[in-house]
């Protein structure tokens, strides 16, 4: 299960943790928190995608994921992001057209 949390778990933070406090004693902590937040966001997003795409792509559970389900899962993630980007852009346009009167 070590690989279940994605590629970001490889990123090495805390490398400077043993450096000890200089002037910027909290810089390493701030750095750490930022990275952990990113990791948490990524992880939450993966859970969300898997939730949606599992329902869409996996019909029957067998001894392995068949190639159709695999392709579907990969496409599902990409298309979901496309839809999210498309809607964000179009929504912004709609807002602009309405004269920013909101």
């Amino acid at each position: 299960m070590s690989d279940s949390f994605g590629d970001i778990s490889n990123s090495n933070f805390g490398a400077g943790a043993g450096a000890g406090g200089g002037l910027n004693a909290n810089a390493d902590l701030q750095d750490f928190v930022e990275k952990e937040q990113q990791r948490a966001q990524f992880s939450a997003q993966v859970h969300n995608f898997n939730d949606i795409c599992w329902d869409k792509c996996v019909e029957k559970v067998g001894t392995k994921l068949d190639s159709r389900s695999e392709t579907c899962l990969v496409n599902c993630v990409d298309r979901f992001i496309d839809v999210s980007l498309f809607i964000t852009n179009r929504f912004a346009q709609l807002l602009q057209k309405s004269g920013g009167g909101m």
């Binding site: 994605g6 792509c57 001894t63 993630v77």
Partner: peptide, 25 residues
Amino acid sequence: KCVAMCMDRFMDSFNLVSRSYSNRL
């Protein structure tokens, strides 16, 4: 048996989705 298999497939799916998302990023 179904639940055991489903767990394994769910992990497969999770890992695949995780990889796809990080590729897209």
